[in-house]
Amino acid sequence: MPEAASAQPTRAPIGASEFDRDTAVTPREPGVYDIDLSAGWTIMNAVNGGYLLAVLGRALADALPHSDPFTISAHYLTASRPGPAVVRTETVRTGRTLSTGQASLFQQDEEGREVERIRVLASYGDLDALPDDVRTAAEPPAIPPMGSASVPRTVPPRRRQLRHHRTPDAQARPVDPGMGARTAVGQGEMRAWFGLADGRDPDPFALLLAVDALPPTAFELGLSGWVPTVELTVHVRSRPAPGPLRVSVTTRNLAGGFLEEDAEVWDSENRLVAQSRQLARARL
């Protein structure tokens, strides 16, 4: 067999990928962490909200007695910029199965004053201790297989390994016509395969990125430009299985200059592993 045909692609292990390096926080003192926000995760010069959520999620995982995010709600107060930042955490409550904490990320402005960028409240537990019983009416989104000719490839590569969005370590294969050419279809839905470009398998923190990794549904509604997140809540339902994720994001109502985005993330075993809702401002 030719060497090229038998070679297997290299897969970065969890803990050793670009995503892990860029979301790693350094303890300064109990409950306080330093990080240098990577410029590779920017959207129109502002840092991606899912990446920021993963950063704060890692800080809380270190600060709390439980390591897995179950629910995390974030309010985005001011736009984060690449560069140094500090995360301050506080333990609100600890219990046998759940612990709750809050965290804020701060940066300095041009005059050296500390500015709060994002504040989160989260509950953590042990995903591996959850019961296996599932009763659901939810179904995975209908997405053609990866590599299918029916999956458009109209989006040009951007920085480094970027496929459709300004997150360098992520790939998404779009399946909705509006995702590539920004042609308004009017149904307010985005669907895509999602995976880290270096082959790293997903974990709960990658799910925090995945819910905010697709282009805004506003593009599919005929709008363009930045769609800043005001609030984002993520529910992590299960530890994802290895392999690519399927992500579906829908908007049912755009009114008053704001829209909601409801996201579902499904793993390679057809399990609904994360859900989210965010409120975002639409620039009309």
Rank of each mutant, 00 (worst) to 15 (best):
Y124N: 02
T91H: 09
V92L: 14
E111T: 13
M146P: 12
A137S: 13
D132A: 12
G112F: 02
A138I: 02
E116S: 12
Q108N: 08
R117D: 00
E90Y: 01
L121D: 12
R117S: 03
A129Y: 07
V87L: 08
A122S: 11
E139F: 00
V86H: 08
E139H: 03
P144W: 00
L98I: 15
A137G: 10
L98T: 15
Y124V: 02
Y124S: 01
M146I: 14
V115P: 00
R135N: 06
F106R: 04
L121E: 13
L98K: 15
I143T: 03
D126E: 08
E111D: 13
Q107M: 08
P145I: 11
E139V: 13
A85Y: 11
R88W: 15
V86K: 09
V120N: 10
V115Y: 00
R135H: 07
P144D: 03
V86S: 07
A85C: 07
Y124L: 06
V134E: 10
S99W: 07
D128H: 15
T136H: 05
D126P: 02
V134W: 05
L130E: 03
P84H: 04
I118P: 00
E111V: 12
G101W: 14
D132P: 00
P144C: 04
L98S: 14
Q107I: 08
F106P: 00
D133G: 02
E114C: 07
E139R: 12
P131I: 10
T100W: 07
A122H: 05
A137H: 14
R88A: 13
D109Y: 08
S99D: 00
P145C: 09
P131F: 05
E111R: 14
E111I: 10
G147N: 06
P140T: 07
V87Y: 07
L121A: 15
T100Q: 05
G95M: 07
V86A: 06
T89Y: 14
E114R: 15
P145V: 13
A122V: 06
T97C: 13
T91M: 11
S123Y: 00
P140I: 10
G125D: 03
S104I: 10
L105D: 02
V87D: 01
A142D: 13
R88D: 13
Q108V: 10
V115M: 05
P140H: 08
P131H: 08
R93P: 01
